[in-house]
Simulated assay, not measured.
Amino acid sequence: MTNMLVSAASLIILGLAGYAGYLLTLLYKQGQRQKAARAARIEKITESIQTIALATVQQQCDLSEASIRLCVLLDAIPVLPQPDYRGRFPALHALYDKVKNLPTHEARAQQNKLERRKMDLSRSEWEAELESQILLEAETLAKFSV
Score class of each variant (00 low, 15 high):
Arg108Met: 02
Tyr19Glu: 05
Lys100Thr: 07
Tyr28Trp: 12
Leu92Trp: 08
Gln60Ser: 02
Arg116Gln: 13
Ser48Arg: 15
Lys44Pro: 03
Asp120Asn: 09
Leu16Thr: 07
Arg108Ala: 03
Asp75Gly: 08
Leu80Cys: 03
Val6Gly: 03
Ala9Leu: 14
Leu23Lys: 15
Val146Tyr: 10
Ser48Glu: 09
Glu125Pro: 00
Gln110Asp: 10
Arg116Pro: 03
Pro81Asn: 12
Ile68Trp: 12
Leu27Pro: 02
Val72Tyr: 09
Arg116Tyr: 09
Ala66Gly: 06
Gln133His: 14
Tyr22Glu: 06
Asp84His: 05
Asp84Trp: 08
Asp84Ala: 10
Ser67Ile: 02
Tyr22His: 14
Leu121His: 08
Thr2Gln: 12
Lys118Gly: 01
Pro78Met: 05
Gln58His: 11
Ala128Lys: 14
Arg116Ala: 13
Gln111His: 09
Glu65Lys: 07
Met119Asn: 13
Ile77Phe: 15
Glu65His: 11
Ala76Thr: 15
Leu135Phe: 06
Asn101Ser: 15
Tyr19Asp: 05
Leu23Ala: 09
Ala94Thr: 13
Ile13Leu: 14
Val99Cys: 08
Thr25Lys: 06
His93Cys: 06
Asp84Cys: 01
Leu135Arg: 11
Glu43Ala: 11
Lys113Ser: 06
Gly21Ala: 13
Arg86Pro: 03
Thr46Asp: 00
Lys113Glu: 09
Lys118Phe: 03
Ala39Pro: 04
Ile13Lys: 05
Ala94Leu: 01
Val72Trp: 06
Arg69Ala: 14
Phe144Asn: 07
His93Thr: 02
Asp75Asn: 15
Ala138Ser: 09
Pro81Gln: 12
